[in-house]
Nucleic acid binder design. Structure first.
Lengths: 186, 186
DNA sequence: CCCCCATGTAAGCATTCGCTTACATCCGAC
DNA sequence: GTCGGATGTAAGCGAATGCTTACATGGGGG
């Protein structure tokens, strides 16, 4: 009993399985045996191709965060990220940010939030206002998105989990525009 | 070498240590040995007095959430909880909500968020507006508080961690009043 | 054809974890 | 005083975890 010999496919299967499981359960509650099993792969191959569970997790986060912000110009960033976070069914676990939000203790996760979201995203938002405390205001808006994601996906809060994506995006952008003293187009 | 024989003090020391460690590291990354060691107590006593690690965690959450909302009338709830979440130094880990936010997978944590915050808190907020989707709007405000807490404490985001509490509370209540179509007194 | 290395497998090692058990010791009731 | 339960201690058990090692095997290059 042996897999077809295709290293690339094996690596990809491991990454996909890890993405799904880290997103569902977080880092601590996902075992390398679970990942290998879901991927249909011997667990020794996980270490051959990724070195360690930590390194695999870092790869998952890097892949996800690269995908998250790549195609949103500053003015539509809030709305786009919100829509993206709302659009999936509540329990679709392989969504960007889920692994991060469910693995908050892990150094890699905290680093992604601080670096990727905390700098790039916040900078884009801060550029939308010229208020004195623009940075703080941008972080407050960022906090909102994170909080919505946490309540919806991690804690399964019902009104947010069932809400219409466009309605939420509209309400949030409306209130955020007060903070940013800025009216988003669209 | 033996502790003075005081069961109540031992129970309390275990609860204090557990509160601190669960808040700092979350449920998964806190071991019963760590708790007992910090409390200066033999770990077998943890099981004698609380039954299991899960039960101890549930006790911690129940104690914290009881304290959290006990003295805030509806109109000042948002501002009060915000101030309380902002008022501590960033790394003060035995603050209410921290254990919950750092242990999002645990059933007890999710239940506390849904029941305690998601019902009592959201209901109080929803009472402040008569908009059609009052419940959703209340949850959005709740999400904001949670997001601020997550970014500040779990991820250590700098602008939020250093911000002046009154400034944050003022900005948030200002934007939230747009959502709730309501002006908070004070 | 056959060699050899990339790929895959099976087994297990060392550690840590939650929890239990068996025993020592203190202190109040009588 | 002594007896018995409440309190504290030491040791370790069984399971799970991340990771390693030693071995099988298939398939492409010479």
């Amino acid at each position: 009993m042996s897999r077809p010999r295709d290293a690339a496919a094996t690596k990809a299967a491991l990454l996909d399985a890890a993405t799904k499981l880290f997103g569902e359960r977080g880092f601590d509650r996902t075992t390398v045996r679970d990942i290998a099993s879901l991927a249909g792969v011997n667990q020794a191959l996980l270490f051959r191709y990724y070195g360690s569970k930590d390194a695999l997790f870092a790869t998952v986060l890097a892949t996800q965060s690269r995908e998250l912000l790549e195609d949103s110009p500053a003015e539509h960033l809030l709305r786009n990220v919100l829509l993206r976070m709302m659009e999936e069914k509540p329990r679709r676990e392989d969504h960007p940010l889920y692994a991060v939000l469910r693995s908050s203790h892990h150094d890699s996760a905290a680093e992604v939030v601080r670096r990727q979201l905390g700098e790039e995203y916040a900078r884009a938002l801060a550029s939308l206002t010229d208020a004195e405390d623009a940075e703080l205001r941008a972080d407050l808006v960022l906090a909102w998105v994170v909080g919505i994601g946490v309540l919806r996906t991690v804690f399964g809060k019902q009104p947010l989990a069932n809400a219409d994506a466009a309605t939420v995006a509209s309400l949030v952008t409306q209130a955020a525009s007060v903070l940013l003293e800025h009216t988003e187009p669209g």
